[in-house]
Design a binder for these strands. Structure first.
Lengths: 221, 221
DNA sequence: CTCGAGCACTTCGTATACGATCTGTAATAC
DNA sequence: GTATTACAGATCGTATACGAAGTGCTCGAG
């Protein structure tokens, strides 16, 4: 974990370090990332830190302004919508492309994770639920043979978890529907359904989460 | 054009310079990008050049190896397939999302570009055809309200043009079919067709180009 | 009391310098 | 003649240093 990374550069070290902190919300949205203190804390110069921050910027986890500096990306409502929309698009495709490669062992594992999610519905814990949710989908999209699409999925998830811990906490009814939709997706894959059908099921699953969030948000106003 | 960019940083200057050269194929695939000579040519130090190269790496235009350096990305056959597949995915979505915002003036302009492509079929020039092709699609996807998806489309196009000038040169029959499919897409948008229908038409249009390329490639072996 | 101009501080952007790593070549042992 | 090793050149990775740009505060005028 914290073992000295012998063969990775300092830039990479700084990148992982910052990524970790942002994902854990230790650096919340809007937090200013000043080069010097970070470099000091990590025992390196500002140059690798700067490069790490530019990478994080490219991934959308931080915003950057010339001659002003970087800060952890703030979640605009529309930003959330766009990210979810994009993730639905690429994750649906990744899931569909992965389907032919999935073994029944994979599917059993996904089903088992989904069962744990179902059991969690009673003693609801948004964080655990989100973790399991990611595990479930990971099983289904990781075998995606197209590395670009897979990378986009990773970035989408990364941005979401860096930005908003759990949509489920805000939308009570959504967790249950989510579990049911997982079941449907698994069935489609087991049946060897059409690629497009699987893609749309996975896509709409995510977009429904988005819609539910927006509806709940609307109701609160 | 070559006016001194007063308010953009040197890093940005280097980025545009390299991007331009790669797009124009002045630096072909596999060409080694050594920091010092580039910095020298641009009249700056290696630091901004390094940053520019890392950005290009993130966009997939160059490959990078630690302690070895960067070189212009080589086009693997599978790399081409994956890029086209991804572009079809995101461009289809972008086109579909743009459709409601398109004015009839936009559609007329696209139709006009497509007519010029049709006229070009006789005295065929792969390069001009490719340029018009990009113009045509640009009209249809630029109004996309989701900036992430739009950005992915730009990156896809950028990577393709940086990598392979024209698919049409290799696949004789494809250009004509392409023009006809453009017509279909325009009709769908004019009719106010379902978003999904438009998306799939635009997606399949690109994927057919990919299939045609693969078939021609296969036949050549 | 409010607003604007000037100044000081903070932070970034880039240049230069040096140490680390890799690649290719030439010499030597077998 | 071939394989292994040692060395030299090239190139990158990072540290340090300095100049540029931005931000906020203070002071003075109205």
């Amino acid at each position: 974990m914290s073992a000295a990374p012998a063969e990775v550069g300092k830039s990479e070290t700084a990148y992982r370090w910052l990524h970790e902190r942002i994902s854990r919300h230790e650096y919340g949205p809007g937090y200013r990332l000043v080069l010097a203190p970070i470099a000091d804390e990590l025992g390196m110069s500002v140059v690798p830190v700067r490069e790490a921050i530019r990478r994080l910027e490219a991934e959308g986890l931080v915003t950057f302004e010339r001659n002003v500096g970087a800060r952890v990306a703030v979640v605009d409502e529309s930003e959330y919508v766009h990210t979810m929309q994009t993730l639905g698009l690429v994750e649906g495709a990744a899931t569909s492309l992965s389907a032919p490669s999935l073994t029944s062992a994979d599917l059993d594992r996904a089903a088992e994770v989904n069962d744990r999610m179902r059991h969690l519905l009673d003693h609801f814990d948004a964080h655990s639920f989100t973790v399991l949710n990611q595990q479930f989908h990971s099983v289904l999209f990781e075998p995606c043979p197209n590395p670009h699409i897979l990378d986009l999925v990773h970035r989408g998830w990364s941005r979401l978890s860096g930005i908003r811990d759990s949509t489920f906490a805000f939308v009570p009814g959504r967790a249950q529907h989510s579990v049911e939709e997982h079941e449907v997706i698994l069935d489609l894959i087991r049946q060897g359904a059409d690629a497009l059908e699987i893609e749309l099921a996975a896509r709409n699953h995510r977009w429904k989460t988005l819609d539910a969030y927006l509806a709940a948000r609307q109701a609160a106003h």
